[in-house]
Structures are given as C-alpha cells and as structure tokens.
C-alpha cells in the first residue's frame, strides 16, 4: 500500500478517536483545533495552485465563501424540510451535512472553472489581479443578495461541524493533493510550474493543467468554507475578504511553495500564533507581522523546506 493511503487511514482513525473523546476535551482547545484544520484544508488546496502548478491566485477566500454560502443554504433551507420538526437523527444530520459540504465544494469548483477558463491564459501578476477581482466581486454579490442574508450575513446555521468532519476533510485534501502530484499525470503540474514553454513543447496542455489545479483547489476551499460556516454558525460576506486570501497565501509561502508537509505546518503555526499571543492583546498583530517579516528574511525558501513523499520543490 502506498504511503499516502496510510496517511489517510491514520487521519481518519485519529478523527474517530478524537471525536469519541471530544466531549471530555476543553472546548477552547477544540475550537482552536477546528480552526487549524480548516486553515490546513485551505492552505493545502491553494498550494496545489500556487505551489505545485506555479500560478498565483489571490481569490481563495472567494471560493471559500461560495462554498460556505452554498453549504449553509443547503442545511438552513433544505434541512428543516428534509429532517422535519424533530431535527432528525444524528445519522440523518450527518448525511445532510456531507451533502451540504459536497454541494458547497462543487459550487466553488464551478466558480473556479468559470474564473479559470478565461483567466488562466494570463500569467503571474495578471492572474493575481483577476483572482483578486473575483474575490471582491463574490463578496459584493453576497453583500447585496438578500435571500442569503445580504450584508448582515446568514445566521442560524446548524452547528454540524465537529472535529471528526474537519479532520476527515483535512485527510481527504492532503490525500488527494499528494496522490495527484505524485502520479504520472500529476507530474504535469510540476512541469507546468518549471517551464511552460517546454511543457507545451512536449505536448502538455498547460492551460488544462492549470484549470484542473484551479478547480480542485476551489473544491477544497469550498468544503473548508462549508466547515467554517457550520462551525461559526453565522457567516458574513466580510469574513471572506481579501485579507483572508492573503492569510492563506502567506501560509503557502511560509510553508514552502509546493511542499505539502511544510504548508501544513505553516497553517498550524499561523493559526496558533495569534492564539498564543492573545495575552498581550493589542500588540499581537504587530508581533505577528514582525515575525512574518523576520521569517521571510531568514527563510525565503519557506520555513519548512524538506521533502514529503516523492513530491519536492
């Protein structure tokens, strides 16, 4: 059995184990852990686009919000009808939540396709600007779309997100990305990153590779959004603005572009850091920013630049 499959099984086992004991765990710890998990999904999926494939997307929060809103819409509007007054059994709720997350992921993937097809012919800075624009457009759309709450946001989302779901999707995202970039097909992502002209010269359809990376990345951003919405129980358009996208990009850069394990560690570190700095309240964002600058000066190649499985870079 190849190693990625083992990792997936281990994560799922962990997820089951943790959810079993979650009743006895510190709620604050669980909250932080959930936030860490969601950020890992976001960073690992963005890494497929920005790291392995070498594109520069600044719209990951946009895809996250599409997923968050669509998943929330499923459980808020369809949930009561399907589950009835009683709220349904745990199994029914679980299935509804899974359906909601997949709907959110697919909606985000569709958005990814819609943005990717026209814009992935652009390179570097131009692509960054287009994806940045996309994120803002999505935000403004949700802000003005009253059926989904408009500027006030969507409230009353059932709290379906548990540590089990988060870890399960972390495992799935890492598994899919790792298997993909280690496959024969997936080497095309690395080749596109290394040299687009040479890739086309050996017969790769680089535009298609970029779109595939974009769509898969958007899918997982969408599921992360769904998990986030059902965790916070309320979502507002401003929660998915430009700064959120930047935060994810920072995780990818700090972890080392195209290095899944590094990106996971960076996501953990950058989620925990603001929490650990909480006691010094007003200074924490200053220290956080300073640490980022120092880290980037000291380790421009990424904080954790080592190999994970066969994929490298």
């Amino acid at each position: 059995m190849p190693r990625p499959h083992l990792y997936l099984l281990a994560t799922l086992a962990c997820a089951f184990g943790l959810s079993h004991f979650s009743g006895r765990m510190d709620p604050y710890f669980l909250d932080v852990l959930t936030g860490v998990g969601i950020n890992i999904i976001l960073a690992v999926s963005l890494n497929l686009v920005n790291g392995y494939t070498g594109q520069f997307s600044l719209g990951h929060a946009g895809f996250m919000s599409v997923g968050a809103y669509m998943a929330a819409a499923v459980s808020v509007f369809l949930g009561p009808r399907l589950l009835g007054e009683s709220g349904g059994t745990a199994l029914q709720q679980g299935s509804l939540f899974l359906a909601a997350l997949i709907t959110g992921g697919c909606a985000a993937a569709l958005a990814g396709l819609a943005v990717g097809v026209p814009s992935l012919r652009l390179k570097g800075d131009y692509l960054a600007l287009v994806t940045l624009g996309f994120g803002e457009i999505i935000r403004v759309i949700f802000q003005n779309f009253e059926p989904l709450g408009g500027a006030l946001g969507l409230n009353g989302i059932p709290a379906y997100t548990t540590i089990f779901w988060v870890l399960a999707f972390v495992g799935l995202a890492v598994f899919v990305v790792t298997c993909l970039v280690n496959s024969t097909y997936g080497r095309g992502f690395l080749a596109t990153h290394d040299d687009e002209i040479a890739s086309e010269a050996v017969g790769l359809n680089t535009t298609r590779y970029k779109i595939v990376a974009f769509v898969i990345g958007a899918f997982f951003a969408g599921t992360a959004g769904g998990l986030y919405g059902h965790f916070k129980m309320t979502i507002t358009p401003t929660g998915f603005d430009f700064t959120k996208s930047i935060e994810i990009v920072v995780m990818v850069i700090l972890g080392g572009m195209g290095n899944t394990l590094g990106v996971i560690l960076a996501a953990i570190l950058l989620t925990l850091l603001p929490e650990l700095l909480r006691p010094i309240a007003e200074y924490r964002m200053i220290i956080y920013s300073l640490m980022l600058i120092v880290l980037m000066l000291a380790r421009p190649q990424g904080l954790f630049n080592f190999k994970f499985g066969k994929a490298k870079l």
């Binding site: 080497r187 690395l190 290394d194 040299d195 040479a198 010269a201 050996v202 790769l204 490298k312």
Partner: peptide, 26 residues
C-alpha cells in the same frame, strides 16, 4: 513534430528520469 526550445528548457526541478518520462507524455 517536436520542438527543443532555446536555452535548454528542461524541467529543472524534476529528475533526468522524470524529464524523459514527460517527453513521452503523449
């Protein structure tokens, strides 16, 4: 019809073996 681009555009982060495999991509 195969094109060897100017400036030896090899996939510098892939191994020699992987570069050759990419050549047989189609």
């Amino acid at each position: 019809l195969s094109h060897v681009p100017e400036g030896r555009m090899v996939f510098s982060n892939l191994t020699v073996d992987e570069n050759l495999s990419m050549g047989a991509y189609l």
